[in-house]
Simulated scan of single mutants.
Amino acid sequence: MLKVTNLRETDNIKPIMLRAFIAKKITALMNEYSVDTLDDIGCFVVLEKDEISAFTVSEMEFVEVLEIGEKYYLHGAKILGDSYGEDIYLPVEVVRK
């Protein structure tokens, strides 16, 4: 599990397309709230495939499947307080018929 609250920490995100996607969202939030980090607002959480137990659907405000690059992620937002939330990404395999 990787928690990210600023652009410097995005360097640890793999793959690069997910890194760019999250960096863009962080930049937008920092501009919107006029802050240098998201420490007081929330964080982005990137899970590994085997960390599925950390993605509890019933705790999410919403859940969707995102295609970022050529990979798929289960994406959800968890609200932990009045002004703090987690944006969570879990890599998943998508089966097509």
Rank of each mutant, 00 (worst) to 15 (best):
D39A: 02
E48W: 05
D82I: 03
E9S: 03
A23N: 09
Y84E: 08
D39G: 00
V35S: 06
T5P: 02
G81C: 09
L80I: 07
E32M: 07
F55Q: 06
Y89G: 07
K97D: 15
I52D: 15
N12A: 14
R96E: 12
L80K: 14
V57P: 03
L7R: 12
Y73R: 04
E51W: 10
K71N: 03
G76K: 02
A23L: 04
V57F: 07
D40Y: 01
I88H: 03
E59V: 00
K49M: 10
F44D: 09
L66D: 09
T37E: 11
T5Q: 12
L29A: 14
G69Q: 11
V94A: 14
L7V: 10
T10A: 07
I41S: 08
D40L: 09
E64N: 09
M17D: 11
E59H: 05
L38M: 10
P91M: 04
K24G: 14
V45M: 01
F55V: 02
F21N: 13
M30A: 08
E86F: 00
L18F: 04
Y73W: 00
K49Q: 13
T27Y: 10
T10K: 02
L7S: 09
K14Y: 02
S53Q: 13
A77L: 11
V95H: 13
G69D: 04
D82S: 11
S34T: 12
